[in-house]
Design a protein around this nucleic acid. Sequence first.
DNA 1: CCTCGCTCCTGACGGTCCGTCAGATTCTGT
DNA 2: ACAGAATCTGACGGACCGTCAGGAGCGAGG
Lengths: 227, 227
Amino acid sequence: MRSDDDPESIDGEDGPRAADGRVPGRRGRATRQRLLECASEMLRTTSYRDLKVVDIAREAGTSPATFYQYFPDVESAVLVLADEMVNEGVEKFAAAAAATSWRGKAGYQGAVDLAETILTFWAEHQSVLRVVDLATDEGDGRFANVRTRLLNDLNNTLASAARDQQVAGKGQVGLDPNAIAGVLVAMLAHVAAHRRGFEFWGVRAEELQATMARIIYWSVTGLKPPT
Amino acid sequence: MRSDDDPESIDGEDGPRAADGRVPGRRGRATRQRLLECASEMLRTTSYRDLKVVDIAREAGTSPATFYQYFPDVESAVLVLADEMVNEGVEKFAAAAAATSWRGKAGYQGAVDLAETILTFWAEHQSVLRVVDLATDEGDGRFANVRTRLLNDLNNTLASAARDQQVAGKGQVGLDPNAIAGVLVAMLAHVAAHRRGFEFWGVRAEELQATMARIIYWSVTGLKPPT
DNA sequence: CCTCGCTCCTGACGGTCCGTCAGATTCTGT
DNA sequence: ACAGAATCTGACGGACCGTCAGGAGCGAGG
């Protein structure tokens, strides 16, 4: 289900390895990290399609060949960035979603906080997340896995909340809790990703947040949010 | 192999022009169309990042130089595909969204139909839509414009429905109708785009559709959907 | 201090794709 | 058949890819 939580082993399976199979030392890891940071930086200003190995290497003050010592291609480097992002996200989402009782004003406030957490996180990692979304849609299992890991806990938390409410006779009767959670998470993710687009319709972030909070609260509890 | 049927004007805006500024004749337009079809076809099986001019040209049985006679780059060709998709989508969405009274069972059924229309449309044009989403996120105004045109009518229809309900004292009091519509559209779009991902949580398309229909109905009317 | 051995980096190369010509080829009208 | 326009393509310089063999940095032990 999950891999080791060793912060050093970023490459998921066998730890960080260079192209020739050896385990990098201090200097090597520093170079690798520098490449990752430059890649992340360039992804913010360059379109994914135009993100070239040469540019990343030049930006990091090294040669293209060095890049290939640590990553088989650009995609893989982005995958590592995505992986780091996930670790951060899982933690934040857990804190935001688990602390909600779903009762009365406090429950509604929890929904508001959750919406805000997601909006903020997406804004911070927008550039990586859009690549994750694209690659996932294109059928890349590695990125799909990243996406799943990021949203799984949040999804489960919302699903069991919805299920609890159903058992108590309060929630959305006749709907699959997993479907409810999935749709809510999708809503949060997509609104967060396209927040800029909403400005075209003159919609502000606060209004988005309030709207989503209401929908979340109602979808989970079946109750009109307290005003 | 070749489709010689003479379609009406292909480019909606300023007419289809070749690289040197002249207006293509029959043969030219046929070639252009063939390139578009091959590009569309390849986008279904190749990742956007690896979609090369050479491959499209070879697939279309012509040379790379010919491609550049009709499109400045791959991106522009995809933009034309996106444009064609929009024309189809606007029509379908208008039909699905405008025919709803939002009253009683028929109103709820309208929400169900809307969800189904979106899910189907996204499934059909998935490969183009994910590029539109990416390019939009990356700040490409041309693609953002495409996205806006696709969703604008749908958005306005939902927004005015929400506003009408508010005026009648029924809807979501205190929320911006545009925000409601935008969030609902975002939900539809993202769930449609990631329908496959939901299978991970064992959620079926029908359940998604029902869940979204309920959320739409409640968000617009403020009423619990009739069972 | 030198040298050995390991780690890390890079110049250089064959290959693919880009984007652009000038010129060859195919159509169209007469 | 022939001129002239429309359309296509071979070929080229340049950019980027991905991979070597070998050079440069660095620590330990003599």
